[in-house]
Simulated assay, not measured.
Amino acid sequence: MLITGCSSGGGDDTQAEGKPVAEPKPLAEEALRPLLLSQADLGAGYLRVQEKAESERFEDVSVQGCAALEKLGQNGDDAMFASRAETSFTYGTRATFGEELHSDRPSVLSSGLRGLFSAYTSCTTYTMTAGTTQFEVKISESATPKLGDEQFAYTSTMDLPAGAQVLKTMAVRKGNIAVMLVGAPALVDRHIKTAVNKLPERS
């Protein structure tokens, strides 16, 4: 995947007398799928693409020059939360746009997202190898809209052989669900509010 970006603090999970409040349980993948963005939500020009098999998602991909990312591992983020649902689209001829929904107890989502985005923004530059292609990645933290309980974002610029590609990664936690968008910065900024608004008020 994807990620510290800018973030806002969550609410207080204790009652007035100091007793902890029971956290909502994670939603199952089946409950997350209807909350994903659809072509109808996005508008004209978007085409949904086939999801890759789990074994193909991180095949022959590695990171060099950033200790935090190397420690995180190729797929450490996928095992971090209790459930996940995802979808992806193409827009126009080249642009891609992906969404992931994750669910877990709010405290687990909060700490996990903070750690994940901290790892991805701990190095301003690093080298990525995909198959036999090696390229430099530059990372910068990004501003986030005030949505949900916490927000995180960063922008990555990849110096690919075919030219530079810029992607924005943004996550918003709302209770026990986190939505993450990855794609061209303008597309992420355009659709993050719609994605968050599809989430229930409190699950």
Rank of each mutant, 00 (worst) to 15 (best):
72 L>S: 03
95 A>F: 10
110 S>V: 04
77 D>N: 12
134 Q>K: 07
198 K>N: 05
99 E>W: 10
9 G>E: 08
103 S>W: 03
90 T>Q: 04
183 G>S: 12
124 T>Y: 09
98 G>V: 09
30 E>Y: 04
23 E>W: 02
192 I>L: 08
94 R>A: 15
164 A>G: 10
197 N>T: 00
68 A>S: 10
53 A>N: 15
177 I>H: 03
60 D>N: 07
114 R>Q: 15
8 S>Q: 13
98 G>L: 13
24 P>K: 02
22 A>V: 05
140 S>P: 07
114 R>N: 12
65 G>F: 10
124 T>S: 13
112 G>P: 13
61 V>Q: 10
118 S>P: 05
194 T>K: 12
171 A>I: 04
143 A>M: 14
9 G>M: 12
125 T>D: 15
25 K>S: 03
48 R>K: 15
1 M>W: 04
82 A>Y: 06
56 E>R: 10
22 A>Y: 00
106 P>K: 01
55 S>C: 09
101 L>F: 01
196 V>H: 07
14 T>R: 10
77 D>K: 03
63 V>H: 06
147 L>G: 03
59 E>L: 11
202 R>A: 06
48 R>Q: 15
20 P>I: 08
160 L>Y: 05
18 G>I: 04
98 G>T: 08
161 P>W: 10
176 N>Y: 01
65 G>M: 08
74 Q>K: 15
187 L>H: 03
8 S>L: 11
4 T>A: 14
41 D>E: 06
100 E>T: 07
18 G>Q: 00
203 S>Q: 12
95 A>W: 05
60 D>F: 01
3 I>W: 12
88 S>Q: 09
88 S>H: 07
99 E>V: 07
139 I>C: 08
185 P>H: 05
92 G>W: 14
70 E>T: 06
174 K>Q: 15
135 F>H: 05
64 Q>F: 13
126 Y>Q: 09
117 F>R: 13
134 Q>V: 15
145 P>H: 11
123 C>L: 02
58 F>C: 14
201 E>F: 04
44 A>H: 10
16 A>W: 13
23 E>A: 06
143 A>I: 12
102 H>W: 00
189 D>F: 02
86 E>M: 10
42 L>M: 09
144 T>Q: 07
20 P>V: 06
74 Q>V: 14
40 A>E: 08
154 Y>Q: 06
150 E>L: 01
70 E>S: 11
8 S>G: 14
127 T>L: 03
99 E>F: 06
200 P>H: 05
179 V>N: 07
35 L>I: 01
155 T>L: 06
60 D>A: 07
63 V>S: 02
152 F>C: 10
146 K>N: 15
41 D>G: 03
49 V>L: 12
17 E>T: 12
31 A>S: 14
126 Y>G: 09
173 R>A: 06
163 G>C: 03
169 T>P: 02
167 L>K: 13
48 R>Y: 03
104 D>S: 04
65 G>H: 04
94 R>M: 11
197 N>I: 00
171 A>C: 13
163 G>D: 01
96 T>K: 14
133 T>E: 07
27 L>G: 00
103 S>Q: 02
160 L>W: 00
83 S>Q: 05
37 L>Q: 00
142 S>I: 11
18 G>T: 01
157 T>H: 13
162 A>C: 11
149 D>N: 04
5 G>F: 13
25 K>F: 05
165 Q>W: 10
101 L>K: 00
200 P>C: 09
105 R>E: 03
112 G>S: 09
94 R>E: 07
21 V>R: 09
56 E>V: 05
3 I>E: 10
5 G>C: 14
146 K>M: 05
132 T>D: 06
